[in-house]
Amino acid sequence: MTSLRPPLLRSVLAGGILICLPGLDGAEPKEDHLIATTVAAAGADYLVQGEYLGTAGGKQLAAQVVAQGDGKFLAVFEPGGLPGDGWNGTDRIEVDGKASGDTTTFGQIGWHGALTGPTFTGTTDAGAAFTLTKVTRVSPTMGAKPPAGAVVLYDGSNTDAWKDGKVETIEGEKCLAVGAETKRSFTSYHLHVEFRLPFKPFARSQERGNSGIYIHHTYEIQVLDSFGLKPQANDIGALYTVVPPLLNACHPPLTWQTYDIDWQGPTFDGAGTKTGNAAVTVRLNGTLVQDHTEVKSGTGANKKKTETPQGGPLWLQDHQNPVYYRNVWLAEKT
Results as ranks from 00 to 15, higher is better:
Pro266Val: 00
Asp155Gly: 14
Leu24Phe: 12
Pro309Glu: 03
Gly143Trp: 15
His319Thr: 06
Ile93Pro: 00
Ala238Trp: 02
Leu115Ile: 08
Thr306Val: 15
Ala36Asp: 08
Thr287Cys: 15
Gln60Pro: 03
Gly156Arg: 10
Gly57Gln: 08
Gly43Gln: 12
Gly298Gln: 01
Pro83Val: 08
Asn158Thr: 12
Val178Lys: 04
Phe195Ser: 07
Leu18Phe: 02
Ala27Asn: 10
Gln290Ala: 07
Glu173Thr: 12
Ala67Gly: 01
Pro147Val: 15
Ser3Gln: 13
Asp125Pro: 07
Leu254Ala: 05
Thr131Ile: 10
Gln60Tyr: 00
Pro244Ala: 15
Gly286Lys: 07
Leu197Val: 11
Ser297Leu: 03
Leu34Gly: 06
Val48Ile: 15
Tyr154Asn: 15
Val242Ile: 10
Ala233Arg: 09
Ala128Ser: 15
Thr218Phe: 01
Gln264Thr: 13
Thr258Ser: 07
Thr169Glu: 11
Ser157Leu: 12
Thr55Tyr: 05
Arg204Phe: 06
Leu254Ile: 04
Gln222Tyr: 07
Gln232Phe: 02
Thr133Val: 10
Gly122Glu: 01
His292Val: 09
Ile236Met: 11
Lys30Trp: 07
Asp260Cys: 00
Asp45Lys: 09
Ser185Val: 10
Gly172Met: 11
Ser211Thr: 01
Ile261Thr: 00
Val12Trp: 04
Leu47His: 10
Gly209Gln: 11
Gly58Ile: 07
Ala36Gly: 14
Asp291Lys: 13
Phe186Tyr: 15
His112Gly: 05
Thr273Arg: 09
Trp87Ile: 15
Gly272Asn: 01
Cys250Val: 15
Gly270Tyr: 01
Gly156Ala: 14
Glu332Leu: 14
Ala161Glu: 13
Leu284His: 13
Thr218Leu: 13
Asp269His: 09
Ala233Pro: 00
Lys230Cys: 03
Leu18Ala: 13
Lys30Cys: 09
Leu284Asp: 00
Gln257Ser: 02
Glu94Asp: 06
Tyr52Pro: 04
Leu8Phe: 14
Trp263Glu: 02
Pro309Asp: 04
Lys59Cys: 03
Asn88Leu: 12
Glu332Val: 14
Asp225Tyr: 06
Pro140Ala: 07
Thr169Val: 13
Glu171Gly: 09
Val138Gly: 05
Gly71Asp: 06
Leu61Met: 11
Gly26Ser: 12
Asp318Tyr: 01
Ile261Trp: 03
Val135Pro: 04
Thr187Gln: 09
Ser139Gln: 06
Ile215Trp: 02
Thr104Arg: 13
Ser226Glu: 03
Gly149Ile: 08
Ala56Ile: 08
Pro244Met: 06
Arg92Phe: 02
Pro198Arg: 04
Gly265Gln: 04
Asn234Pro: 03
Tyr52Met: 06
Tyr189Leu: 08
Thr273His: 05
Ile221Tyr: 00
Gly107Thr: 10
Thr182Ser: 14
Leu8Pro: 03
Thr273Glu: 08
Ser211Lys: 04
Pro322His: 08
Ser205Asp: 15
Lys72Pro: 01
Val151Leu: 09
Pro118Ala: 10
Pro245Arg: 01
Ala233Leu: 04
Thr124Ser: 13
Pro7Ile: 09
Leu18Asp: 06
Gly80Val: 06
Gln290Met: 10
Ile19Lys: 10
Phe77Met: 08
Thr121Lys: 13
Val138Asp: 01
Asp91Asn: 14
Lys274Ile: 09
Tyr259Cys: 06
Thr103Tyr: 03
His319Tyr: 10
Gly172Gln: 09
Ala42Gly: 12
Leu246Cys: 03
Thr299Asn: 07
Asp155Val: 12
Ile213Lys: 05
Val242Leu: 06
Ser226Leu: 00
Leu24Ala: 13
